[in-house]
Design a protein around this nucleic acid. Structure first.
Length: 880
RNA sequence: GGGCGAUUAACUCAGUGGUUAGAGUGCUACCUUCACACGGUAGAAGUCCCAAGUUCGAAUCUUGGAUCGCUCACCA
């Protein structure tokens, strides 16, 4: 009887790409309408990276969010874009060159940067294609790149502005040096890992030959840069010795023994060597005591200037061995005690970070941090989950200046020009044509580039055109939410707030949702080296983009990481399959007479029940959405569609749908189609493709679900009495089914069931009206209702609330088993009654608890007592 | 060392003061009934980490402890 058909199997690959193209062709991801906009700027993925499961999660959650608000009618904008990822991208190209036997210096800066742009273009196609594959409803017309012209303008503007405000300075400091990438990195880019090393005990003899001082170090090779040895001023072991000169072995220099409060008397021997150029503590100590800074490292991490000839060019490892050997020969090496300690590694290259003295640019962070903390205090930003507030605050309070210069070629070159002749420094938006001081025209731009995050921190407003006063900026800034993993809170989130407050006077977004991290099934971080990552595109290929998104939504609770293997995505794909098949069934049964409009539908109790359930589901999604409780959204639509709609409502309507009367068939089909249509709208943010595919086959559908209105909860669709009545029906059916199952009655066998209703039972009328329905669910055509009828022989009894169900099982009753089961139920119920009675006889409870709770307990007690009465009667009957 | 989080069914996890604590997966039994075996029906399965406290009432709040994890931190 149907004109519309869905293919038999749910095969997402058949329609996902087509629908995405349809959405793009019709520009459905552009903000439209009036009112308060909803804006999200995508956390820009590394342009040379590939989409990993973190992106899969993160973009799934953003997509659900923006699709919901778009359907709610707010002008909704999700801004796409990618990040130039300085070190990572430069490394990609340098690795290519290495395979060709070349280095970046063979190409020169200009050619190298040009080549990197080409690599960027190639990779860019890949990453955007991947985002399209997973269905991300991004407004591609507004796509940005952290190094495009506009963002470069914004970056230069920010640099100059901060410089003019005195918030950027240049200086020679000890920075974290990545010897592999040969650049400085910021404190945040250093990851500390526990390493099994050794504590080397060494003796430094006094210059006058009067003995020695023994000290301990984890890095004996830095001996070559030592300028002093320090002890604590109150350390009695060294009393009277402070001020004497020591003879630094190997390097053959004389260095003083001095006193400084920073030394820990308890650690080692209480004496520490001072190497200002290669240790942060020593750097500070060196400044306090006006000591020299002896740099002993080349930029590549080998031993360089200021070391004896025989050490030149050695790696630190080789130098360490050589030093120990030489000290041993001199009789100054005591022992190496195994020692675990934290060693800094560069986040990108993995190389061991060297504290390294060099001239770098820094941002003064304190003033920025204060404004960023103000944003939180004044509730301009809100963290979900809330506990990340303290992570944010703690970081802000302990903020240190940010080293922003990188000795790379790929990135925003620092807009600072120095006069070749007089050395005058110009910090400008554009290259000056002549020196402002001496008028000479030969100026050289600072060769360094800026940290990648120096462009990322402007992302929410620079992508909208800032610093120009563009219409987009006026309309869509500040943005509404940022959705990103919590491991990026310092790098990006916190700094965006700082930049937003400093440059726009506004927090760049209101809501900060920190996503969980996706881990493997064993809870380990997904990583290339472990090979335990899941490729989101493989998931899409195997299960579909909807399975990916729905599974991510369903599993994302607040602050709990997700442990998952690929099999886990079956959750989403099974649900999508269910939606597909239920829809296929409904579409198959659309009557030739067509679908009636809502106002011509006559609703029965079952219809009212499902309406109430739908209403509750809509409310639950709305509430969860405002609180970013994704798992609640997922569970809500899953349970509504599968448990309520499919398992009960669709089954319940089969009687009508197969009725002889065409009018009844049309009524039932019409109601089903309207409910399906609304369910599809309800689920579209979470399963976008399948819902759209089915929606577009529905009679009278609108243009697209993307822009269809989200369902709205309406009080006139709340029907508590219908819900209670249908609940009673479900209980009744459950009881009969249980008996069937327990007595292993063939599901196909029609059995006799008598439901003995108590007088005044509230749902008696409803059950009577729906006799055929109960009979169908229970698989008993002969089911009948009776009041006061005598109980036939050969039945088992199911005790319900307000009725008894007698199921005729005749000779199959296993009496001992039935009695045993009954005794168990009875015991359990009696225990329960006892606990409620205790509660109610407790005056304190009756007096203190709210009236409705007490009332509820009373009701439960009387119901349970009622059950006990029936159970005991039944027991007596079985025994007799 | 500081801070944060986790500990609930075999597994992965929901559940922040009020039914006899839930879901998905897995497991058991039955069902190839004409939307779906990626299905249906039913079932088994839990000292809510431990201890003390607050409360009429605690998985939920407080304190202490245990175990695991994350994060920050200059013990050479």
């Amino acid at each position: 009887m149907s004109q519309i058909e869905l293919p038999k199997a749910y095969n997402p690959a058949d329609f996902e790409d087509r629908l995405y193209q349809f959405w793009l062709d019709n520009d459905l991801f552009s903000p439209r309408g009036e009112g308060e906009p909803f804006v999200v700027a995508i956390p820009p993925p590394n342009v040379t990276g590939v989409l990993h499961m973190g992106h899969g999660l993160n973009n799934s959650l953003q997509d659900a969010l923006v699709r919901y608000w778009r359907m709610k009618g707010r002008p909704t904008l999700w801004v796409p874009g990618t990040d130039h990822a300085g070190i990572a991208t430069q490394q990609v190209v340098e690795n290519q060159l290495r395979k060709e036997g070349k280095s970046r210096y063979d190409l020169g800066r200009k050619a190298f940067v040009e080549r990197t742009w080409k690599v960027k273009e190639d990779h860019h196609a890949i990453i955007s294609q991947q985002l399209k594959k997973i269905g991300a409803s991004l407004d591609w017309k507004r796509e940005r790149f952290t190094m495009d012209e506009g963002l470069n303008h914004a970056v230069r503007h920010v640099f100059v502005t901060l410089y003019e405000r005195g918030l950027i300075y240049k200086g020679r400091y000890l920075v974290n040096w990545d010897p592999e990438a040969q650049t400085a990195i910021s404190d945040d880019e250093v990851e500390y890992k526990e390493v099994q090393g050794a504590l080397y005990h060494i003796r430094y003899p006094f210059a006058d030959g009067s003995g020695f001082v023994q000290l301990a170090t984890t890095r004996p090779e830095t001996l070559l840069g030592d300028v002093a040895v320090a002890v604590h001023p109150t350390d009695e072991r060294y009393a009277g010795l402070v001020g004497k000169l020591l003879k630094l072995p190997v390097a053959d220099r004389e260095i003083p023994l001095l006193a400084d409060g920073f030394v820990d008397k308890e650690f080692g021997t209480g004496a520490v060597k001072i190497t200002p150029a290669h240790d942060p503590n020593d750097f500070e100590a060196g400044r306090r005591h006006n000591l020299a800074q002896i740099n002993i490292l080349n930029p590549d991490g080998t031993l360089g200037p200021n070391v004896p000839e025989r050490y030149m060019g050695l790696t630190t490892k080789a130098a360490r061995e050589k030093i120990v050997a030489e000290l041993t020969e001199l009789g100054l090496f005591v022992e190496a005690v195994p020692h675990k300690h934290q060693v800094g590694h560069a986040q990108r290259s993995g190389a061991v970070v060297e504290p390294y003295l060099s001239e770098q640019w820094f941002v003064r962070m304190k003033p920025l941090a204060e404004k960023a903390m103000e944003a939180l205090r004044t509730d301009q930003i809100r963290f979900y989950p809330k506990r990340y507030e303290s992570t944010y605050t703690t970081w802000m309070e302990g903020i240190r200046d940010w080293c922003i210069s990188r000795q790379l070629w790929w990135g925003h070159q620092i807009p600072v020009w120095t006069c070749d002749d007089c050395g005058q420094v110009h910090v400008k938006m554009e290259a000056p044509t002549a020196c402002e001081k001496c008028g000479k025209t030969a100026l050289t731009q600072d060769p360094d580039v800026l940290d990648t995050w120096f462009s990322s921190w402007l992302w929410p407003f620079s992508t909208l055109g800032w610093p120009e006063a563009t219409p987009d900026l006026a309309k869509y800034y500040p943005t509404t939410a940022v959705v990103t993993a919590y491991d990026i809170i310092f790098f990006w989130v916190a700094r965006m707030v700082m930049a937003g407050m400093e440059f726009t006077g506004k927090a760049p977004f209101r809501d900060i949702y920190m996503t969980p991290l996706v881990r493997d099934a064993k809870g380990r971080k997904m990583s290339k080296s472990l090979g335990n990552g899941i490729d989101p595109l493989e998931v899409v290929a195997e299960y579909g983009a909807d399975a990916l998104k729905f599974t991510m939504v369903y599993l994302s609770s607040q602050g709990q990481d997700i442990n998952l293997d690929k099999e886990g995505f079956k959750l989403g794909s099974k649900f999508a399959n269910k939606i597909w098949n239920a829809s296929r069934y409904l579409l198959m049964n659309i009557p030739t007479e067509g679908i009636l409009p809502p106002e011509q539908l006559s609703k029965n109790g079952v219809d009212l029940w499902i309406e109430g359930r739908l209403n509750a589901a809509i409310r639950a999604v709305d509430t969860a959405m405002l609180a970013y409780k994704y798992n609640d959204m997922g569970h809500t639509v899953y349970e509504f569609f599968w448990n309520d709609f499919c398992d009960w409502y669709v089954e319940a309507t089969k009687l009508e749908l197969y009725a002889d009367d065409p009018k009844r068939r049309q009524q039932a089909a019409s109601k089903l189609v309207h409910l399906l249509e609304e369910s599809l709208r309800l689920m579209h943010p979470f399963l976008s493709f399948i819902t759209e595919e089915i929606y577009q086959k529905l009679p009278g559908h609108a243009f697209s679900l993307v822009t269809a209105p989200y369902p709205v909860a309406m009080t006139e669709r709340d029907h508590p009495e219908a819900e209670a009545a249908f609940g009673a029906l479900q209980d009744l059916v459950g009881g009969i089914r249980r008996v069937r199952s327990e007595f292993a009655i063939d599901p196909a066998k029609d059995i006799e069931v008598i439901v003995s209703l108590e007088k005044d039972y509230a749902h008696a009328a409803f059950l009577n009206q729906n006799r055929a329905l109960v009979a169908q669910f229970a698989g008993s055509e002969r089911l009948g209702f009776a009041a006061g009828a005598p109980k036939p022989d050969g039945t088992v009894t199911v005790v319900g609330k307000g009725y008894e169900t007698w199921v005729l099982v005749r000779d199959v009753i296993d009496l001992p088993k039935e009695l045993d089961k009954l005794a168990k139920t009875l015991t359990k119920t009696k225990q329960y009654v006892q606990s409620v009675e205790n509660k109610l006889s407790n005056q304190a409870f009756v007096n203190s608890a709210p009236a409705d709770i007490v009332e509820g307990e009373r009701k439960k007690l009387s119901e349970a007592q009622d059950s006990i009465r029936r159970l005991m009667a039944y027991q007596k009957e079985l025994q007799g």
